[in-house]
Write a protein that binds this DNA or RNA. Structure first.
Lengths: 330, 330
DNA sequence: ATGAAAGCGCTAACAC
DNA sequence: GTGTTAGCGCTTTCAT
């Protein structure tokens, strides 16, 4: 690996001058600049961001920690932050925790050790361990502020849950179940909260046997649905914690020959890519995923740039009900 | 940010000793080690990987460059390399090029500047520009070796294309179209090659009007399919360049009321998650994505560890035909 | 306009 | 068992 010293030696000047020339700083004659640039090109010089980072104290790199890269929800967010980052010359370190608290911890640690300039995190679980007390600027997605010290961006999950459930009620379904993901997921519980509110608003009983938590996986949705079907009084509609779960519910309902959407309705959450497939046409709650990612990055950059007088922000985005074919029209 | 010097000062020893203690090296009294560890914990010390990387010359980090994080094919690969990497304490820098040559170039450059220990890349396009002449160890996925100097891992795309097309022929379809992705994609063209071979083997004419390239997007599949349907002699089956394209073809066929699979058949490639959905049940060619990622990382590590006497390898994996419901049973 | 020198945080020789 | 020192590749004063 060739360094600025090598190229300095080659053209017989000090490496300080080479550094200045390479960085387009003033105080170097145009002639020298040209010579340096040419030589650097010729020798195949690759700047060492490590060495630079050591002295400059920033790396132009941010970390993005997500739970599940195979759930299309997260890639959409990732695309948003990536695009925004690239636009101003930042790189993003994408970390996939696979819903595992330990992985998350380990990534957070590494990210800090690598001295990323900031971290955007969409935590898997609700409880934020002490590792979240980081010096590095941090933005939380779809999670409450960590001790009021971090800015957050979220969709109004409660409102989304309300919208979904209300739609089911208004569509005439009588026994609406909530099949959620992780019990300790903040967004999951907010959605459940919305579900309960809708039920209450329309004077329906909240039947705890109709509320089940599993994991944010299609398989979980299927399994839980199958169990519910064996109840003496099974649901005639399901509000699923997210689209991935909804997919499993759909699958199960189909396997058991339920007549959709007339006799059985399903609403998801996220409005993930596959939901709009003609074969699926899942009614769901949309959240502006790409935009959330973009905004999260912009908030992060702001924090990075104003490290001293940072202002804790909380952005809440409005969810939107997308009616498709897994619920009946009124 | 506190450093080893801070903690050395705090307990009145040299920072070298602190370093040794922190790294579990021999030659430090257990008592001192304990003291150091305790103080480090107390002061919230975070090792600086940047500084370490500068002297140690490696970063325990690799880059993974892919084209499209929203195509489920790539996340599967990413999971494979991530898991393998984490197992031995490596981090992976996931870079999404969005099929853009410039982005790819820029990421490759940054990755090298960050001094990642190695790079795994699934290039978007066929031509590998000079930027690929990197000092950093590199593994290519589903692409030919770069000047015989890089190890590669790929599925036998040609064979896959053959399998897909042969299945269509044997299922009785008479006019089989190939709707591909990017014209300059290596894997795409290999698949096309296999398509042609199958046609030839079964003494069918290769009709160039039945071969169309677009992009690896659902929308592209839809648009192209729509055009083909307007031909005076439209296809009665399609071998799509990948599952994402196949999805668009499927959608279009449905919109136009084609009777599937009896009057119209579709085969994809990749066996991506959604292909097995009961609502989709796409016949496709499976490639062991997770395993490819895992293997790619293992190859990379080998190269990193034996930088001097590296052996250029080429691993070719067998694809598998998965018959589902978008083609008729014979 | 250019160079010398210090120093970023750390590891690794080399003393003692 | 512990400390001293050099140096990784770079940027940044401070001189000249």
């Amino acid at each position: 690996m060739i360094t600025i010293k090598d190229i300095a030696k080659e053209i017989g000047i000090s490496y300080t001058t080479v550094s200045r020339a390479l960085n387009g700083k003033s105080g170097v004659s145009p002639k020298t600049v040209k010579k340096v640039l040419k030589e650097a090109e010729k020798m195949g010089y690759q700047p060492n961001a490590i060495a630079r980072g050591l002295v400059k104290k920033y790396t132009n790199t941010v970390g993005l920690v997500i739970a599940d890269i195979t759930n299309p929800y997260y890639p959409s967010i990732a695309r948003g932050v990536e695009d925004a980052a690239r636009k101003i010359g930042y790189n993003v370190f994408l970390c996939n925790t696979n819903y595992d608290k330990d992985n998350e911890k380990s990534y957070l640690k590494t990210l800090q050790e690598q001295r990323v300039d900031g971290i955007i995190i969409h935590p898997a679980k609700d409880d934020l361990p002490s590792i979240y007390d980081l010096q590095t600027p941090m933005i939380l997605i779809n999670r409450p502020s960590h001790g009021g010290k971090t800015s957050t961006i979220e969709v109004d999950n409660e409102r989304g849950g309300f919208l979904a459930t209300e739609h089911l009620i208004q569509s005439g379904y009588k026994r609406i179940s909530f099949i959620g993901g992780d019990v300790v997921s903040y967004s999951n519980n907010k959605r459940l909260e919305g579900y309960k509110q809708a039920l209450m608003k329309y004077n329906q009983l909240i039947d705890e046997s109709m509320i089940v938590h599993g994991s944010f996986k299609t398989k979980s949705g299927y399994t839980i649905m199958e169990k519910m079907l064996k109840l003496e009084n099974p649901p005639d509609a399901v509000f699923a914690g997210n689209d991935v779960i909804a997919l499993g519910v759909l699958h199960c309902a189909q396997d058991y020959g339920l007549n959709m959407p007339d006799a059985f309705g399903v609403v998801g959450f996220d409005n993930v890519q596959f939901s709009e497939l003609p074969q699926i046409q899942l009614t769901t709650i949309d959240q502006p995923k790409y935009y959330i990612g973009k905004l999260a990055f912009e908030m992060l950059i702001e924090e990075i740039r104003n490290k001293e007088e940072r202002i804790i922000k909380k952005i809440v985005l409005e969810p939107e009900l997308i009616i498709r074919k897994t619920t009946q029209k009124r």
